[in-house]
Amino acid sequence: MNIEEFRNFCMAKAGVTEGFPFDETVLVFKVMNKMFALTGVDTFESANLKCDPDRAEELREKYAGIKPGYHMSKKHWNTVMMDGSVSDQLIYELIDHSYDLVVEGLPKKLKVELELLKTQNI
């Protein structure tokens, strides 16, 4: 997977915006202004993705390329290496999982707004 594929997959989801809130090298993807994915744009060595804590532990035990979230809550975030040790299919699943977790935690008002965006294909 390359950064273009990663970016396109994230941006295809409803309510997603991208930006550089930390510096000019860390690209952050948010759904309804809540972060669900971030990655370095200069090297694209890894991406941080939110994850259910129990699943996060299982993934870290099973895959050498999945580690506790770098500069993030180690309980709720994983760093996924983009070195080929994790399949593209699993990375896409983990992006979906991260997005879904953030959406689940949104206030009802934002969930309603997001559903409206989905019906409008935005």
Rank of each mutant, 00 (worst) to 15 (best):
R55L: 15
R55A: 12
R55S: 12
A56W: 08
E57Y: 09
E58L: 14
E58N: 08
E58H: 11
E58T: 13
R60H: 10
E61S: 15
E61I: 04
Y63A: 10
A64Y: 12
A64L: 14
G65N: 06
G65I: 12
I66E: 13
K67H: 09
P68S: 13
P68E: 08
P68F: 01
G69F: 04
G69C: 10
G69T: 05
Y70A: 03
Y70R: 04
Y70L: 09
H71D: 06
H71F: 11
H71S: 10
M72F: 10
M72S: 05
S73K: 08
S73H: 07
S73G: 08
K74A: 08
K75N: 06
K75A: 04
H76I: 00
W77H: 05
W77P: 09
W77S: 08
N78G: 02
N78W: 08
T79H: 01
V80Y: 04
M81C: 04
M81Q: 14
M81H: 07
G84L: 09
S85W: 01
V86K: 06
V86R: 06
D88S: 13
D88P: 07
Q89T: 15
L90I: 08
L90M: 11
L90F: 09
Y92D: 00
Y92S: 02
Y92K: 15
Y92H: 12
Y92V: 03
Y92R: 13
E93G: 00
E93Y: 06
E93W: 01
E93L: 01
L94G: 09
L94P: 10
L94S: 06
I95L: 05
I95K: 06
D96C: 02
D96R: 08
H97S: 10
H97C: 07
S98M: 10
Y99Q: 03
Y99L: 06
Y99M: 02
Y99V: 03
D100T: 09
L101Q: 08
L101C: 06
L101N: 08
L101F: 01
L101T: 02
L101D: 08
L101E: 13
V102W: 09
V102E: 07
V103C: 06
E104L: 11
G105Y: 07
G105I: 04
G105L: 04
G105K: 14
G105R: 14
P107H: 02
P107A: 05
P107V: 12
K108A: 06
K108W: 02
K108T: 13
K109A: 12
K109Y: 00
L110D: 14
L110S: 12
K111N: 08
E113S: 11
E113Q: 15
E113K: 14
E113W: 02
E113D: 13
L114S: 05
L114Y: 05
E115W: 00
L116W: 05
L116E: 15
L116Y: 11
L117S: 01
L117G: 00
L117W: 04
L117V: 00
K118G: 00
K118Y: 01
K118P: 03
T119L: 12
T119G: 04
